[in-house]
Amino acid sequence: MILHTLNKSADTSTNLHSCLRTTLPGCALLLLEDGVYAAVKGSVSASMLSARADIRRYALREDVEARGISALLADDIELVDYAGFVALTAECDAVQSWY
């Protein structure tokens, strides 16, 4: 099971599209850095993520709070902090970073 990490805004990069083409059901996707903007409710990228209920979707709390978007997130994205990020890394078999 792979942990995918995504660190760019979906407006500046096609990484989210590419990432989702490689995901298997049950894998995990962590949005971090500018990638957290993909979790903003009502955005095209949030819709793409919602359509993939088969993958576990997370956003890094510290990056969400830094950008002042805590109140804007889609409901189906779970927040994790850095300790949670480390736990996900240990839980998954490999980490694939999209940047």
Partner: peptide, 8 residues
């Protein structure tokens, strides 16, 4: 056991 990459 794990390889994690951070990039720009």
């Amino acid at each position: 056991d794990r390889l994690v990459t951070f990039g720009n």
